[in-house]
Design a protein around this nucleic acid. Structure first.
Lengths: 335, 335
DNA sequence: GCTTTGTTTGTAACTAGTTACAGCAACTAG
DNA sequence: CTAGTTGCTGTAACTAGTTACAAACAAAGC
């Protein structure tokens, strides 16, 4: 095993002090002749500076930490792409952690990010990590909370989210416009985003004279629970005397499962039942699925900028959703 | 801005030396009474140890570096999940970099990973980074090259790849079994994996008495080039007097584009043309697309283990592909 | 009661860098 | 010819930890 060259080795090889090598590397005042000799030594010894040591002195590393709940969601993928774009433009790297939707791992990974003294932290975690991110913000590490807003955020603690009420309303108006009136909802749980989307949907539906009964909303935590939830929705609609003519899914994570549950029962989309879901994805076009799209790449860009630019106060950004109409709600095709 | 507590602050607060605090934190010999006082000080000051400083002393950090060419591919997503699994079990984090398929960024990011003194590096880059990864391996940083093999790898430099020839052969046998004889191939370029898959396909086809002409293979570097490539393939087949009855895509990255090109032309799958592609993905079931699946999660697991376990010699692992038959090749359904 | 042994703790050196400050040489100005 | 200024370089202190070594102390053995 070959030992790595240190700045001391380079200094010895070039016949100067470590201070001078450091100055050459970081652009201080040095003679051109000295600089040349140092660069030659760097090349000869294949010197690669130790970013950890640099980080120790600077008080923080140059990497941006990102904690994601579920890497498989296309929303997060585009978000990361946006962050990565900003990171690359600022000589940063992205340190990514996936929590697999487990709270204990969220807490552990945010702590690790803190230990790593990340330049900034972008998280999609729940409230369990708020204590630490708050403290990190106070310690001078900008933190960006994605997909929910934060009460009484201290300076340096930001949030980026979607206007979820608006997302629900867009769905309601679109479904009503397509002549649907008996709607079932598959939601994914207790997160604020889910509740707001359902609330927006319900309010807009009510405004259109189409009340959404409480029992027309089913919660499915995992993909396995989706099939049963869809069944229940179908049965309840029939019992109510208003067989379902539309299914709304309030989370992109369960789109595949809901779609599979419907087709497995031989239900035609949109023939029998209309289908709208959250988050655009590559195959939505091929499948003709109408979705509410989030500007996830833009959100990632903004998150990265908040980390790099370090605005003084807490910043709260809310992005507008857009409806991408395709064919899954029985949309009339343009002639 | 509140300054972070250091080990010195904890020591002062507990009335001991920094050495004792370090011993409490890392499990050295200390009285229970001292340990209690130290832990109380840690809690009181909300002390978070600096992983950078630890890394300086240890000579390396505890994070695993991963450089990915294209985060949007489901193959890489599962690979990362596998790596992350091993990382989590070993108190590591994954530091991820996306190169957006640009060689200059690959080189820069592998260098940054080296500067960060990652515990190990897992890359899906091209040959341009081999010089550095070789050197890193010699310096004691295990490197795992994904999706291609490496000639004369030094100790600590490993490779994990798919049996690409076998993948091509599986496609050939399956298509022939479905009664297809005139096959067009959309490939994505000069990478070894692509060439091997096409070679395997051609060889197995020839064995079955179905030669694959040179001009039945089109290269599409980007998604934009796919539509034109498919057109050319269609025209050439017709000119040859053997209109295409199957299209093979040798990269998962272009699956969406090839599928879209086919459906945009009103070509029915599998009615008019059969379709097989690489890499399984969530929507493949819904769409009935037959694929050659890679055990990407397992590959990630192995990659992570090579980093953590540091076997002495160079290890070369080749995984077997499996064909997941659905309906896109006109498969006979089981009764 | 003294020596031996073992445990706990502190001192100080070490990791690989950065930087404040001082020193020294060369050049300019009086 | 000397004083002041400027520019380059080295010394040494600093970052926040870890650890080898030695010292201190108590308990046990003789």
């Amino acid at each position: 095993m070959v030992k790595r060259a240190t700045i001391g080795d380079v200094a010895a090889d070039a016949g100067v002090s470590t201070a001078t090598v450091s100055r050459v590397l970081n652009g201080g005042a040095v003679t051109e002749a000295t600089a040349t000799r140092v660069w030659e030594a760097v090349a000869r010894l294949e010197y690669t500076p130790n970013a950890l040591t640099r980080g120790v002195f600077a008080g923080r590393s140059s990497t941006i930490g990102v904690v994601i709940r579920d890497l498989s969601s296309p929303f997060y993928l585009d978000l990361i792409r946006g962050i990565d774009e900003v990171a690359a433009a600022n000589d940063s790297l992205v340190m990514l952690a996936n929590t697999f939707r487990r709270v204990d791992r969220e807490v552990a990974q945010v702590r690790t990010m803190d230990e790593q003294r990340v330049r900034g932290l972008i998280v999609t975690t729940g409230e369990a990590t708020d204590g630490r991110t708050r403290r990190m913000a106070e310690n001078g590490t900008p933190c960006v909370i994605i997909a929910r807003s934060v009460l009484d955020a201290p300076p340096g603690m930001h949030s980026i989210s979607l206007d979820n009420v608006e997302a629900g309303q867009l769905m309601a108006v679109h479904l009503a416009g397509c002549g649907r009136s008996s709607i079932g909802v598959v939601s994914s749980g207790r997160r604020t985003s889910q509740i707001e989307r359902t609330a927006g949907l319900r309010r807009a539906l009510a405004d259109l004279g189409l009340p959404l009964p409480e029992d027309a909303v089913m919660v499915a935590e995992t993909e396995d629970e989706v099939s049963g939830a869809v069944d229940t929705l179908l049965v309840r609609g029939r019992d109510r005397g208003e067989p379902l003519d539309a299914i709304v899914c309030t989370t992109g994570r369960l789109t595949v499962a809901v779609h599979a549950a419907l087709t497995a029962r031989g239900i035609a989309i949109p023939g029998d039942i209309a289908f709208v879901t959250m988050d655009d994805f590559p195959w939505a076009t091929a499948l003709g699925i109408t979705v509410i799209a989030q500007p996830s790449y833009q959100m990632g860009l903004k998150a990265g900028e908040l980390v790099v630019d370090r605005p003084s106060g807490p910043v709260e950004l809310v992005f507008a959703p857009t409806l991408v109409a395709r064919t899954s709600c029985g949309e009339r095709q343009k002639a």
